[in-house]
């Protein structure tokens, strides 16, 4: 099994065996990050551009570390410092970057579909580092790796995703990722945050966290992104937290060995109670660690083959 694609744009596009290849490759890369010299020469001379149209310290840093551990040259371009602020179109930016002959562009963009648009303009690889409310494939891959590592399998697990499903690219990528590997996914949100037709993606739709949590193996709490809502989609943070936040009381209804994921950065006391975020069954820091490994795997699999 080899990965034979130029770009990683969505989990929806990936076949089950492609996802499994990425996960097993990432598993191998975890060891590299534990070496004293956390660097391998594999991608020497390759140039990776992190083109970020949205601020994201966590994801950008993770991609940057991954690139550097592979010995690639990583260049960060953020919207505020670039010609984007001067009104250059994505196509022009892409063409200008391409003229510098990079091997891969990692794109974070507030518009859904922007990575696909970019990939259509240029010859080098494109990795989607999160586009609008569409997908965030590397996040889903690291979530899959984290769960697989902790619970030994994905197939047959029950996954619950709670939060603003409407605006969440993490939710979309994870619904596709977990269902492709045989898990059963339920999404939980108030109706104001539940997008139309989401069940057709192959997940269960629930409005109450209590209804979903009882037989769940994994619960993933999404960050409430107040900055994304022009009009608040719930009355108050207090009420959201009371109805949809994960706390000890709600967790009391769950299986004892449930594990908790959160894509971060967390709003302590909003979608997740502080003591739960720090509890041993919280895998939040494992997710971060696996993020680097997954991104190394993506670079390796996309750039490790020949350019022809």
């Amino acid at each position: 099994m080899r990965l034979k694609r130029k770009d990683i744009l969505t989990i929806e596009d990936l076949a089950k065996d492609e996802i499994e290849l990425i996960l097993s490759t990432a598993q191998s890369f975890k060891e590299v990050s534990e070496r004293e010299i956390k660097k391998v020469p594999t991608l020497r001379g390759r140039t990776i551009i992190n083109l970020f149209y949205e601020a994201s310290t966590r994801t950008r840093t993770s991609f940057e570390i991954a690139a550097k551990r592979m010995s690639a040259d990583a260049i960060n371009i953020s919207a505020s410092s670039s010609s984007v602020a001067k009104g250059e179109t994505l196509k022009d930016t892409a063409k200008n970057l391409e003229a510098m002959n990079p091997d891969c562009i990692v794109l974070r963009h507030p518009s859904s579909g922007a990575p696909q648009v970019l990939a259509g303009f240029i010859k080098c690889s494109v990795i989607n580092a999160g586009d609008g409310s569409h997908e965030h494939p590397s996040q889903a891959l690291l979530d899959l790796l984290t769960v697989k590592e902790k619970l030994g399998r994905i197939d047959g697990l029950k996954i619950v995703i709670v939060g603003d499903i409407s605006h969440s690219r993490v939710a979309r990528s994870n619904i596709y990722g977990f269902t492709k590997l045989g898990a059963e996914v339920s999404v939980v949100a108030p109706p104001t945050m539940m997008p139309s037709g989401i069940a057709s993606m192959g997940c269960n739709v629930k409005n109450r966290i209590e209804d979903a949590i009882t037989d769940a193996d994994v619960i993933m709490m999404l960050r409430i992104q107040l900055e994304r809502h022009k009009v608040p989609l719930f009355p108050t943070v207090r009420e959201y937290s009371r109805l949809f936040g994960l706390d000890r009381k709600k967790l009391g209804k769950a299986k004892k060995d449930i594990v908790i994921l959160h894509p971060g950065p967390i709003n302590r006391g909003v979608e997740i109670a502080s003591d739960i975020a720090d509890a041993p069954y919280s895998l939040i820091l494992d997710q971060v660690k696996n993020g680097v490994a997954v991104r190394m795997a993506l670079f390796y699999l996309l750039l490790g083959g020949s350019r022809e």
Binding site: E12, S112, R172, P195, S196, G197, I198, S200
Partner: peptide, 18 residues
């Protein structure tokens, strides 16, 4: 509001506001 296409499964799948 900020909608850019028909609301429904396709919009949800593409992450576009309906």
């Amino acid at each position: 509001a900020e909608g850019v296409m028909n609301e429904g499964f396709t919009a949800t799948r593409l992450g576009l506001k309906g």
